[in-house]
Amino acid sequence: MPGESQQTSGPLITPRTGLARQVSVLLGLLALSYTVSLLGSMAILGNASGWYATANKAPWTPPGWVFGSVWTVLYTAMAVASWLVWRQRSAKTRGAMTVYGIQMLLNLAWAPTFFGMYPVWGDAALWLAFLLIAALALAVTVTVILFGLINTTAGLLLLPYISWIVFSASLNLYAAANN
């Protein structure tokens, strides 16, 4: 009837649904994730054979190659999750993507703080890194919730990420307390 609002059950048909736009945004989000990964890796590689090689590490610390493998999968899942949320034309999308951006910045800040600042600041850098990773865990938790409210698959894709962050926080806490 005239004057009635129509409700749709799926995403609205918008320019966001064009295939070329979908692919370019997905590739952009993958590039963003891998750039954050690359920048973090630079701080790690620059110090992994230095102070960290002789540092007191948690007994549950996995071999170094595990970190690169896990992070590759996680950064890919993060990009796909953010793309799934971006695809939804929802009032909640902007807020969810803003929190996603905040957690990406916290993620980017952690490795240079933990690995790069230790030679200068000593254990204070490890405690600062622990505060960063705790804030990251909180931001990722909020991202999981917000993403999940918009797209269930996107929220689920981030669950391994929050699990890995909590695990990494335990490694950071051990290092801060024992070095």
Rank of each mutant, 00 (worst) to 15 (best):
V36S: 09
V120D: 15
K57H: 08
W121Y: 13
G122I: 09
W86N: 03
G40L: 06
S49G: 14
P119C: 05
T35G: 09
G122T: 09
L105Q: 06
P112E: 05
L38T: 13
V80L: 08
W83P: 04
K92P: 09
P62K: 03
W51Q: 02
A111P: 09
T54Q: 15
A58N: 04
L38V: 12
D123S: 15
L45E: 15
L39R: 03
L105C: 08
G101T: 06
G64M: 02
G46D: 07
M117G: 11
V80T: 08
A96R: 00
T54S: 15
G64I: 11
I102V: 15
V120R: 15
Y75R: 01
Y75A: 00
A111K: 07
K57I: 10
Q103L: 07
L105P: 09
W121K: 13
G46F: 04
Y118H: 13
G101E: 08
I44K: 01
I102S: 11
A96H: 02
I102M: 10
L32Q: 04
P112Q: 07
K92D: 15
T76C: 09
D123H: 09
R89S: 14
F115V: 01
T93R: 11
S49I: 05
S33I: 07
R87F: 02
P63L: 08
G68N: 04
A109H: 06
Y100A: 14
V73I: 13
V80R: 00
K92V: 15
M42C: 10
V99C: 10
V70F: 04
V66C: 08
G46I: 00
S37T: 15
M97K: 01
V99W: 10
R94T: 14
A96S: 07
V36A: 12
S37Q: 14
S82F: 05
L38G: 13
V70K: 07
L84H: 02
M117C: 14
Y34P: 08
W71V: 10
T72Q: 08
Y34I: 10
L39Y: 03
R87Y: 05
P62D: 06
V80N: 00
M42D: 12
A91Q: 10
G95R: 12
G101Q: 04
P119Q: 03
W51F: 06
V70C: 08
S69Y: 10
Y100H: 11
Y100Q: 13
S33W: 04
A53C: 06
A96D: 06
V73Y: 11
M78G: 07
A96N: 04
S37F: 14
W110H: 02
L74K: 02
G116T: 05
I44S: 04
P63K: 08
L105N: 05
Y118M: 10
Q88N: 12
V85E: 01
R94K: 14
L32D: 04
Y52P: 07
I102N: 02
G46S: 02
A109Y: 04
V85W: 00
R94V: 13
V99A: 05
Y118T: 15
M78P: 09
W71A: 06
V66D: 03
M42K: 12
W65I: 13
G50R: 14
R89H: 14
P59G: 14
W71R: 00
K92H: 13
W121H: 10
T113E: 03
F115L: 00
I44L: 11
A43Q: 00
L38E: 15
S82L: 06
T76N: 01
A91Y: 03
M78L: 14
T93H: 01
P62V: 03
L32S: 07
A48C: 03
